[in-house]
Amino acid sequence: MQLEIHTTRVDAVVAWARKHSVEQYPFLSACCGVEFMATVGHGSSRFGFALPKASPRQADLLVVVGTITERQAPALRRVYEQMGDPKWVIAFGACAASGGLYQNYAVVPGADQVVPVDVYVPGCPPRPEQFLWALKELRTRIGGQPAQEMPAATGSLVRIRPHLPQRKPKAPPRKRGKGKPA
């Protein structure tokens, strides 16, 4: 067997490794969740995307699947903050991408109001092929990171994505509702 030698950069190797081993954590909140479960059977592991993890702490990819209500938004934000860097987000379905048909007092108009979204998957619900497209698109984005954003060769973890500003969200006034009894 002939020995082959290839030369490359460390960051390219790291990106190559990363895009082939993305652990996903689905945040299933509505009917799209059922569609997402069906999608898992379409072989996302062929692209190196492992089956969904049980905890966001073990995951690199947050898949926001379904309608995000205002009441759920703090939970989604918390899940995102529990994930280690580097991390990516896919908004699965019309509701996660834009609020969908719910333009009202109860629904967040798109998961990107709460967490930074890399890839949007439209559809109500999206077809499994669309989700596979999103995974491939995300792989392209992970692999195409500019070198200066990649981890240093020494092994210290540099954030691959600019972090969100860690400012506190504006809390609404904590007064009691008008109609509340004393």
Binding site: E70, R77, N104, G110, Q113, V114, V117, A171, P172, K178
Partner: peptide, 25 residues
Amino acid sequence: MGHPLRKDYEKQRRQPLVRVGPLSK
């Protein structure tokens, strides 16, 4: 605050708990 299915609740009024976006990448 208020009761959203009453007709005097403003249709456009939103009361988010978390809003840091839009955070499209």
